[in-house]
Simulated scan of single mutants.
Amino acid sequence: MFNIAIKQEEYLTYILKDLDSNSRLEIVPEKGGIVTDWTIQGQKILYLDQERFKNPQLSVRGGIPILFPICGNLPDNIFNYQDQQYILKQHGFARDLPWKVISQSTDSSANIILSLKSNSETLKVYPFEFELQFTYKLLGKKLIIEQLYQNKSQEKMPFSVGFHPYFYCNDKNQLNLQIPATEYHNKNGDITYPFNGELDYSTEEIDIAFTQISEQKTSFADYKRNLKVDITFTELFSTLVFWTLKDKDYICLEPWSSPRNSINTGEQLKYLQPQEIHKANIIIEVF
């Protein structure tokens, strides 16, 4: 049995529930279409810094922010296109803009469809007209994010997209990462390291990218909490980023469609022809 409710706090929040599995998901459309909370049988899956979330001047740290039309940051925040320069801030603008709820249903899952369209402000920093439609489906211990990307411009549109889930974890030494890669790059992308599944969580920050993945799936086990999280994704997503800070109770395991600065370099970059639609999905399942 499925249910959708609404609550008004700092922002209007939609609460999706699967009552049979005692799974509960919160989404805030007006703040970047972000998933802010997910609990299963009372155990929280996601981390959220509530104070940062309440402060509109600060970027959100927590939940599942949406990254579009770039992932990561650009050198000096500059996007070069047809002899012009545009200023695109880290991770793009989708996570900061209000999304519109266009549909909701409780028939075969608790699901809600959100839409984001280009406007006069986005065109100043990203000169393409577009529409995104994301369907969030809660089904048992599974979150399905179905995505539709449409280029509504009259010219070919380059873009990157990603998700930045903050998974709650209060003892990283009890983690077992399963990432389908044998090497990773540092944040700047200029040094490559071998990867055997282990990372040093005593360092102040880990910010690394796996750009050569062998399958469309990653996972981690948290032995302290006796849970495992699988993330599967369609072929649009070619890069995995892992990020965490020392002494913070989260890890971020992020599917990106292309690496940092790809909108300038073209590396693994996705293009849509005029009026073309691309569909993708990501499934996060908890065991």
Rank of each mutant, 00 (worst) to 15 (best):
N119L: 00
N264L: 00
Q104K: 14
I231M: 12
S115E: 15
G189M: 06
E235M: 05
K44G: 02
K246T: 04
L227N: 14
N55T: 09
Q82W: 12
F210I: 02
P69L: 07
D49G: 01
L67Q: 11
N170V: 01
N173L: 13
L48R: 00
E10L: 13
I15T: 03
P259I: 02
E235Y: 07
N261I: 00
E155M: 08
D200V: 02
W256T: 02
Q154S: 15
E198K: 15
S103V: 02
I78Y: 13
L123A: 10
K224Q: 14
P165F: 02
P259D: 10
N55R: 09
I64M: 08
Y126C: 00
I40C: 07
S160W: 07
T106S: 05
V229R: 06
I27V: 14
Y271W: 12
P194C: 01
K54G: 03
L114N: 06
W99H: 07
E198D: 15
S120L: 12
Y136W: 06
P180G: 03
Q82L: 14
T203H: 14
S258Y: 06
P274M: 11
L148S: 14
E129L: 13
S115H: 09
Q212G: 04
A94P: 06
K279Y: 00
H185T: 12
S118I: 00
S219R: 07
D18G: 07
T192N: 15
N22H: 15
L240M: 11
K228W: 15
L58V: 06
I34Y: 08
V286L: 11
R52H: 11
I283A: 11
K7H: 05
I66C: 05
L25N: 07
E254R: 06
S219E: 11
